[in-house]
């Protein structure tokens, strides 16, 4: 689906954001891009939908070279959700806001209405279609932005820190939505600083540091390399750190989330999974 071949990117001011990345993401994967600020994460995402063009190397999205395709053309394939929904919301109702993208693709009439309805339903905004998006909460506005991207029915979803500035519940809601979309067949690329969310939802992680790809592999494998993560200022989720010594002693199996650790501990203590009912929750 997405193939990056030795891509470099240098900003006009001379800052080398990316220094030779290569990777291949298959259709239907859920990939997290992690790394400290300035590691090149956002630059990488912007290369994926053609907002920026690689200064060397190339990126193919479903066979389409991003350097040759127009952004409007790529927008059909790659949906991009930005950090701040307020950068895009400008229409007086949620309905019109959701219709903006598909209209740009030339859709009209019943097809357009269906797209809007489906997108609103997918993020649970159907009751709010006639509201002014500016009056909704930040989390709801982020869902408006997500739905406005979904309405274009892209195969790939690119999310740039979609949970910043939201409380835990709102963030979890957005991530659950993204998970649902992933299960429906979207390929998902997520930039996030929230390692717990990455461990919980992503299947694979790309670790960037100073414009280079430091690690690429399944989330569990990536979070086991604390040395490399530390080099780019990342710390694995606390639950993984907590479980590591026991895991190394062979007492627990590898875990990624608190729920998994809980199940493992119960099983280890009592030798059976059902024992959780005996202990206070």
């Amino acid at each position: 689906m997405i193939r990056a071949e030795n891509i470099h990117f240098t900003y006009p001011n001379g800052f080398q954001a990316l220094k030779g990345l290569s990777f291949h993401i298959k259709a239907g994967e859920f990939v997290a891009v992690i790394g400290q600020n300035g590691a090149g994460k956002t630059t990488l995402l912007k290369l994926l939908n053609g907002l920026l063009k690689p200064t060397a190397g190339r990126i193919l999205i479903g066979g389409l070279d991003t350097a040759r395709a127009r952004v409007a053309e790529l927008a059909r394939k790659v949906g991009f959700l930005f950090q701040n929904p307020d950068h895009q919301i400008f229409l007086p109702t949620v309905r019109e806001e959701l219709a903006f993208g598909p209209k740009n693709l030339g859709l009209k009439g019943a097809v357009l209405e269906d797209r809007v309805k489906d997108a609103a339903a997918a993020v649970g905004l159907t009751p709010y279609l006639d509201f002014n998006p500016r009056q909704l909460s930040k989390g709801q506005r982020q869902r408006v932005a997500l739905a406005s991207v979904l309405a274009m029915q892209p195969e790939v979803l690119v999310l740039d820190e979609p949970t910043t500035g939201q409380d835990y519940r709102e963030a979890l809601e957005i991530m659950r939505l993204v998970k649902k979309l992933h299960q429906q067949g979207h390929t998902v690329l997520l930039v996030s600083h929230d390692m717990e969310m990455v461990a919980r939802f992503a299947g694979r992680a790309l670790v960037l540091g100073e414009g280079q790809l430091l690690l690429d592999g399944p989330v569990a494998t990536v979070f086991a390399r604390e040395d490399v993560l530390a080099a780019t200022g990342l710390v694995p989720p606390q639950v993984i750190q907590l479980a590591r010594p026991y895991q190394e002693q062979g007492l627990l199996r590898p875990v990624l989330t608190v729920e998994e650790l809980y199940a493992e501990i119960i099983a280890a203590l009592r030798g059976e999974v059902d024992a959780r009912q005996v202990l206070p929750a």
Partner: peptide, 9 residues
């Protein structure tokens, strides 16, 4: 960038 990502030309 946000509007171009929504196929805005």
């Amino acid at each position: 960038q946000a509007q171009r990502a929504r196929a805005y030309d």
